[in-house]
Design a protein around this nucleic acid. Structure first.
Lengths: 140, 140
DNA sequence: CTAAGTGCTATAGCCGCTATAGGAGCAAGT
DNA sequence: ACTTGCTCCTATAGCGGCTATAGCACTTAG
């Protein structure tokens, strides 16, 4: 079974080459073996690991959370309570962001629909930005 | 009318002191006069300007967009088309983010409800992260 | 044998702040 | 007058999570 180059691993995992090196530097990815000419040589498990990381990143988990999740993967017999906690916290964060963004969306829409598209002088967009009291939602 | 200190301006605008200095450095806020002892002295308009910036930041506009919006405020007779464009672009960005986050929310919820809260070995959270194919939504 | 491609390291930059260090000045209490 | 504590000043570094650049070594295809 031939060793995989960083380029091949990048290709199959969907993680870019410099990002892989970055993950190695911050200790998220195991330091691989090196060839005679000092190139990184990966086994196929590196691809799995990177896919795991990529998927977690796509779901918005930060590096520290991913570090913990990977650590847990190494202890399959342990309770997965902590994984649940991490995922729940992430869910709460996502829900909070959605709520905030939805409020912003409303305000942006109102700004835009109220604007009569004339002059800056009486542009509703500019007015609303200048005067927070013009917002209906006091959320922010 | 006495000049306002950076602390007073920060207080009334809701923008922190170091942030005000930062905005000055990047040319977003006009350079104020200085007292004999080299302290910044603001007029009341600085508070309005900072409130504008703060509100725009809260709505997710980036610094460059705000720079343009402020520039427009200085030309009240111009058409406000550009302000509309900036706000529309921001609305599109926000809508896109909401959509993505909603997809993530769904996946996180599925991860959590499928987990039987036992061992890491068969933890649905970990499994899902490891294998993207377990996602129903292929959005990401 | 050459040229393109891939790999390597080290370092700087991105955004929008925030924190830290090290100093000067001002206001109020003793 | 003195001290204490607050605000102010500058300059610089750090945050997260990469991404870009420079300058070199090596490999592979034609």
């Amino acid at each position: 079974m031939p060793a995989l180059s960083i380029g091949q691993v990048a290709e199959s995992s969907g993680v870019k080459v410099p990002t892989i090196r970055y993950y190695e530097r911050i200790g998220l990815l195991a330091v691989p073996a090196r060839s005679a000419s000092n190139r990184r040589e990966y086994g196929p498990d590196a691809i799995q690991r990177l896919r795991f990381i990529r998927h977690a990143r796509e779901l918005g988990f930060d590096i520290e959370a991913i570090r913990t999740l990977i650590e847990m993967q190494h202890h399959p017999a342990q309770s997965c309570e902590q994984a649940d906690e991490i995922a729940s916290a992430q869910l709460a964060t996502v829900e909070d962001r959605i709520q905030r963004l939805t409020a912003l969306k409303g305000e942006l829409e109102r700004m835009l629909t109220c604007c009569r598209h004339e002059r800056v002088r009486n542009c509703r967009v500019i007015e609303t930005l200048a005067d927070h009291d013009k917002c209906l939602h006091e959320a922010h």
